[in-house]
Design a protein around this nucleic acid. Structure first.
Lengths: 143, 143
DNA sequence: ATATTTGGTTATCAAATGATAATTAAGGGG
DNA sequence: CCCCTTAATTATCATTTGATAACCAAATAT
């Protein structure tokens, strides 16, 4: 298989991932937050602690918009902005307790759908899936 | 590994896929079309021929909005709507020649970035990647 | 023959997002 | 000290997207 074919395989793969992600996360977020806001919370949840710049890079939007959305999330008490004591321009962003609760609820819904999706997989299949996730994360979807 | 761990692995994996997809597709689309319009074109390109309903399901938006965006794409001569001769309510959607050209250009940019991303992978790695893509597509991200 | 369902369209309005620019404040290098 | 860069904020405006509802026409079921 040459690179071009592999490329098309990847395009079709990512399309599937996006479709399934849509399906799994559909209506999992509370109505009180927008789609990007949910994406931001998810990013923070996965990364535990992060910075506005990192969030901005990963969600690839204009920085001003990231800043705006973070302010909104902060007003809603879903995140905490903590000033860096060494470099006072920087801040680190974490989920507040309320934010953690929101994400736990969302993840519970998504997890149930995920479990449903793999319910027919054998032990063997699950091992394959796990190995494949690791492989792709390390070799293709690395930072 | 229990299901909960596998779930978290998948969440973090899909986050990576989204991030890398963002990176690869950044500015690849022409300015004349919006993000969703690009997504729709991509979906049609991957599926060759499809219907408004299918597009709607996969992009998971309100049908009226799908219809609106398809009209816009049609006005821009990027897609063709072809009436089904048997059931005249249905239509099939294809890329026009112009639409194909637009997508070829976009894919060329994305492919170059993709090649760059895998340039350090060995033949062995590429085989692993290909196998992992197939595995996940069949066992986890199936329709 | 007439409901009902299916596939799709159109209009409209609110909300979210994108893009740009001007601004503040802190850190680093010469 | 002055200049430049980095990190982030705020304001503003255009555009996109989401959501809802009313609608049409073809197919299907009763």
């Amino acid at each position: 298989m040459d690179n071009k074919e592999l490329f098309y395989k990847m395009v079709s793969f990512t399309a599937s991932v996006h479709r399934v992600t849509n399906e799994l996360t559909k209506n999992a977020k509370p109505d009180s937050i927008s789609q990007v806001q949910y994406k931001i919370l998810e990013f923070i949840a996965v990364n535990n602690s992060t910075t506005p710049s990192e969030i901005n890079d990963c969600l690839n939007m204009a920085f001003s918009n990231t800043s705006r959305e973070l302010s909104k999330l902060s007003e809603k008490n879903l995140i905490e902005k903590i000033m860096d004591s060494k470099d006072r321009r920087k801040q680190s962003i974490r989920l507040s307790d309320e934010g953690k609760a929101v994400m736990s609820e969302a993840f519970a819904i998504i997890e149930a759908r995920f479990i449903d999706r793999i319910q027919n997989a054998s032990e063997e299949d699950l091992k394959d899936i796990e190995y494949a996730l690791d492989t792709l994360q390390n070799k293709l979807f690395y930072p």
